[in-house]
Amino acid sequence: MEIKKTALAGTLESSDVQVMLSQGTNGIQFDLDSDVAKQYGTAIKATVTSVLNAYGIDNADVKIVDKGALDMVIKARTIAAVQRALDIVDEPNWEVL
């Protein structure tokens, strides 16, 4: 699956995460901003990657601003961003959910 359109989900408030997805050409590229990047950077990226993989997205630029979100929040925000980026907001992907 190719990302055609840039999409954003989430907020910058405490315990949330803001995920922006845009078209990429070189695999999944991360730009991560988080106060806990050192401790949880790898885990955050792994969560986002697994959602992208579930939707079959191989190329994407992912910009994440994390404000201490829990794993399920990261997953939920990423799913929302993907559904918007692929223009399938009305067709939830039950296998991923």
């Binding site: 840039t6 999409a7 954003l8 907020t11 910058l12 408030e13 405490s14 803001q18 922006m20 404000k67």
Partner: peptide, 21 residues
């Protein structure tokens, strides 16, 4: 910082809705 983040967050979301990323 929490109010600052709330304000910026709202502005960013509004722009995203208009397709400005």
């Amino acid at each position: 910082g929490s109010r600052f983040n709330t304000v910026v967050s709202e502005l960013v979301s509004r722009l995203a809705q208009q397709g400005v990323f």
